[in-house]
Amino acid sequence: MALIGSFQDNFNDNVIGPNWGNSYGGVSETGGKARIPCVAGVFAGYQTAKDWTLAGSSAFVQLPLAAAANGASTEAQTAFNIIQATAGTFLAININTVAGTIRFENNVGYTDGSAVSLTYNSSTHAWLRIRETGGNVLWDTSTDGSTWTNRRTLATPAWVTNSVNAVAVELLSWRNNGTTNYAEFDNFNTAASSAAVHFMSASLTADGALGSALTPSAVLGASLEASTSLDASVTLAAVLSAELAADATLGAQTDAAARDDLTPLIGQPQSGWTVSPPWI
C-alpha cells in the first residue's frame, strides 16, 4: 500500500477510520482519542490491515493515558506494536503499569530476552516511535512529539525489509485481572495537537506610559507612465476698451427774483462809524 509514515490519524472525528479496519475488543474513538478497553483476560486494540511498509519509514503516536494497574496482579499492558504475517514476531513498545516499566522489544515467539526495560514515566514517555533507517530499527520516546530520545537500536530484522506492504500497526491493551479501565492513544503520525491554539480571557488593569515599536518604511523610486485625457470647464475673462463721446450743455440757474426794483438808500453816517468815500 505505502510507507507506514504516510498514514496519519488525529482521531478528532470520533469515528474509527477505515484504515483501522482490523480493530477488535470494543475499542472506540471518544473525545478525540483512540480509546482501548483494558479488560481482564481480553485483548483489545486498534489495528490496521497488513498493507504497510516499515522499511525506510517511521511510525509514532502520542500516549496520553496508559491503562492503570487497577488491581491487576502481574500485567496491565498498553502497547504500540508493528506486526507482520508470522504470529508472535513483531516490534513493540510495551508499558506495564503493574511493574512500572516501559520495554522496547523485538519479539520472536512473543518474547524478547534482550529487550531494553526502563522505569515508565508518563511525561518522559508521552510519545512513542518505531522507525527503520540505515539498516537499523530504532525505538524512541519524546516528551512533546518533537525532540526524540533513542532508547534502543538494533540491526534491522530480515522480516522488516522483506515485508513490503505486509505490516500493520496495532495499539493494544490487556490485563491479567483487576478492574476494567482503558488506555488512550492520540495523534498517530501527526503532532497536530502540539500546535493547538488556546484562547484565554484576562482582566487587564494598568497605568503607565505606552510605547510603540517603530515600523521602518521604505520609500521606493518608481517610473510611472500614464496617458490620460483631462476635461475642464473654462472660465473666460475679457478686458474690453470703449470710447465714450458725449455732448452736454451746462447751465446755471440764478436767483430768478428781479433786482431792478431795488432802491438804495444813503443816509447820514452815525457816530462810531468810520466814513469813507463816497460819503465824505
Rank of each mutant, 00 (worst) to 15 (best):
S142T: 08
T124S: 14
A155D: 10
A69E: 06
A92I: 07
Q77E: 11
I83S: 11
N121H: 09
A69P: 13
E132C: 09
T147S: 15
Y120H: 08
L118D: 13
Q84A: 15
T153V: 15
D140Q: 15
A76C: 09
L171E: 00
E132N: 14
P64L: 07
A69Y: 06
V160G: 03
I130C: 01
R175W: 07
A87G: 10
T119K: 04
T74D: 14
G71I: 03
R131D: 12
A76H: 05
V160W: 03
I130Y: 05
V116M: 11
T74I: 10
T147Y: 10
Q77A: 14
N165C: 05
G145E: 01
S73R: 08
E75H: 14
E75A: 10
D112S: 12
L118R: 11
I95A: 04
L128M: 14
E132Y: 08
T133L: 13
T161K: 11
D144W: 03
T86D: 10
R152Y: 10
P64N: 09
D144M: 05
R129T: 00
S163I: 07
L171S: 01
T119F: 04
L118N: 10
T156K: 09
A168F: 07
R175F: 10
L171T: 03
A166H: 05
S142Y: 11
R129M: 13
D140H: 06
A168S: 14
L138F: 11
T119P: 06
N70Q: 14
T119R: 04
T74N: 15
T133S: 15
T156P: 00
E170R: 14
R129C: 06
W127N: 00
V108T: 15
E132W: 02
T86K: 14
N121T: 07
S122T: 12
S142Q: 06
R175I: 07
S163H: 02
G109C: 08
N165E: 11
L118V: 15
A72G: 03
A67D: 01
I130S: 00
A76M: 09
R175Y: 07
G113K: 13
G135Q: 07
I82C: 04
V116N: 05
V61N: 01
W148M: 01
L65T: 10
A67K: 02
W159Y: 15
N70D: 13
L91N: 02
T124N: 13
A166F: 08
W159R: 04
N96E: 06
T89S: 12
S163R: 00
T161E: 11
S146A: 15
T153R: 08
T124W: 06
L128I: 08
I130Q: 01
T147E: 08
W174E: 01
T124G: 12
E170V: 13
T101P: 02
S163Y: 05
L65V: 12
H125R: 04
G100I: 10
